[in-house]
Amino acid sequence: MTKEPQQSAQATRDITYAAAVREAMSEEMRRDPRVLLFGEDVGVYGGAFGVSVGMIEEFGPERVRDTPISEAAIVGMAAGAALTGLRPIAEIQFSDFLVLALDQLGNQAAKMRYMFGGKARVPMVVRAPEGSGTGAAAQHCQSQEAIYCHLPGLKVVVPSTPYDAKGLLKASIRDDNPVVFLEQKLLYRKSGPIPEQDYVVPLGKADIKRKGKDVTVVTWGRMVPMCLDVAAVLEKDGIQVEVVDPRTLVPLDRATIIESVCKTGRVVIVHEAVQTAGYGGEIAAVIADSDAFFHLDAPIRRVAGYDVPIPYNPKLEKAAVPTPERIERAVRDLLA
């Protein structure tokens, strides 16, 4: 099962991606008193991107806490809280800063359950916004999901729509493992429909955002809407693109991706993160070492960020990451 009713027969309402995140957190905090949120400026300020606006008013300063500027402390605190019975959500203001907490995240939180022989559980979520496009330059615009995918013990989630964001965050909060939940800066203001009633999107299940028979495009995060736009353009030339959004990078829904490539025989992997050692390489290897290999009628292509720091100049900032033109050209090349 790969396609979920994003727009089911039931009633939906449009909310922004940011609001979807907020709703997920709020609903889980209402549902489970062990859930709490902390990070820099999440309380009084309402979050650097306004995601947690109104929450401190509803849940009070014990459950919505402002922290000092120390990512290691924030994540370490989350790990400890989780270990001792709470279900914390730690917000890191820019995903770029998460590397400051790598020891707490990767050596401690990620490893504790294993190293304590299963006796410990670390049910925590670390949320952080990724991505370029806001002109925030090299240290505030990166996409580094590959780092966290590389640490066993962590789950990594990258939602691309308000629907996915809300459903996946709830699932992440309910998950007993440390989950790195990477939001997309430039999508915060984007609206999308969500069902009226409560729902959860399970982790580890990809979503086929658009069906097609000629080329598979595997993509996540902010690149998903860009790929969908390119697919619409290509449709006019009779090229039918299938867009597969893994949604969860670890654990990866290999089956959906492989099935799609078997069908189309061609695949382009698109991600904003830098190409070298990007997660696209992992997916490419998964495809190449699967049944889908024997259906490939063209090499596996990646369209990803160039191996450069994100520039400050707006034109260069756009050009440093995939553009619709690059994606379109890659697809056409495979069909040449």
């Binding site: 025989g265 290999f293 024997f294 259906h295 009628d297 090349d333 040449a336």
Partner: peptide, 30 residues
Amino acid sequence: TPAARRLAGELQVDLAQVSPTGPNGEVRLR
């Protein structure tokens, strides 16, 4: 390409006799 080889095997087509049209000179499925 792998897809071309697979189909060639199924259809008993000798790849050496197939004219390639791939951009890198490879035999494609078509």
